[in-house]
Design a protein around this nucleic acid. Sequence first.
DNA 1: AATTTCCATTTGGTCGGACCAAAGTTGGTA
DNA 2: TACCAACTTTGGTCCGACCAAATGGAAATT
Lengths: 234, 234
Amino acid sequence: MEEKITGRAADRVVRVLAQKIRDGVIAHGAPLPAERDLMVEFGISRTVAREAISALSSQGLVEAKPRHRPVARKPGFDAAMDATGSIVGNLLLQPGGVWNLFDTRILVEASLVRSAAEKANKHDIAALETALLANKAAIHDSDLFYQTDMQFHRIFYNISGNPVWPAVHRAYVTWLAPQWGQMPRLPERNKANFAAHAAIMDAILMRDPDAAEAALKSHLMQAWDQVRLTFGDI
Amino acid sequence: MEEKITGRAADRVVRVLAQKIRDGVIAHGAPLPAERDLMVEFGISRTVAREAISALSSQGLVEAKPRHRPVARKPGFDAAMDATGSIVGNLLLQPGGVWNLFDTRILVEASLVRSAAEKANKHDIAALETALLANKAAIHDSDLFYQTDMQFHRIFYNISGNPVWPAVHRAYVTWLAPQWGQMPRLPERNKANFAAHAAIMDAILMRDPDAAEAALKSHLMQAWDQVRLTFGDI
DNA sequence: AATTTCCATTTGGTCGGACCAAAGTTGGTA
DNA sequence: TACCAACTTTGGTCCGACCAAATGGAAATT
């Protein structure tokens, strides 16, 4: 009943610590034992302790800022997306990488608005209307408009109830931020975007999935055109 | 003109090596320099060299098998999905984790078949029909049926032309394999699954996105019911 | 007493050297 | 030529040490 001695020594440490984090023995946000403590606890060298922490970090189970104690993070889809960031970063540097990612967003979000049109409940509708009003009120404040724009879109990722989608939305926003952040913010564009949001909202209120999907796709494609105008073909 | 001395020393090495891999200076499949060579090349200790390789590995830029030279991998969406595996593994261990993942698959694949029904070209149709025939022929060979089943579904992920989707399909198959692999394989179930595939195919031939989506969803929900029957509520 | 300042301790980051075992290479022998 | 043993390379692990940033608490200030 002893542990297998197979593979790297750090694997055992990783397994044990991962289990502790998942089970909450090491609470979310609590710091991990210091490297020198792990040495005595597991009878390993500091090299292995550090390697184990590094592995946990790459799995998103701990957050390791330089010069700081690594803190435990319950495995959530958010953490997964964070840990995936550096990987995706490489892909975005490739030709067409940004478009490929944005294209997936179009498909996913189209499907989400379609789903919303079919089965959004009163609560969802209310949230959408609130977000839409905030969006309208921010037309002349481009920074605020950006925030409310994001918020409006985020709601679609929340409606399904599947916790993966909010994490995906956060990932999209984070990964595509370098492009969006540098785009010129004009009240005219804000007005057009708000109109697009309103069109999507209308279609959802009419319970018309096809119209909602069409409006969403048109909206996102317009946004993409803006990106291309700003950055050229990427 | 000097490099920033900020952050960990390994970061600089990671940046340089990542660049070399992206640019093809280190060809896809070629081994990285040995750790002791990296020491002299970058003027670092072996500790840092190993840390850099570890970081590259977690970013999917190199494949590091124990006791073997790490080999370079051009950043692709496949590599990204591979590197994400250990992260997702944690999520699947959580209550409802598998369902959350499978639920996203339903939404994505529904959207893909919908898209296929709208704009699949002759070549796509032919590929689907070929896969469907192979699937039919394998009804009495459960292992082969599993293969052809996967192949049929994969085509939907290929039609869009966006290289992200095939990688996503591979990821779904890999991550959900522990569940699927242990399910009982019965010719009766194969026959039902083939019928479902045929129904999707029909809807696509009729250019009926709604019917295609409905058929796909029904098919996947049935598959999920099987999973639940096999594993109980997970 | 509450707050700020400062210093000793803790802790992560890096280094160099060392040993082992597995993988890869080489050369000699059958 | 084919095969096996010795040698070399290389990744995995451990040790001890030093540095600098972060931390926490004592000491000084208000």
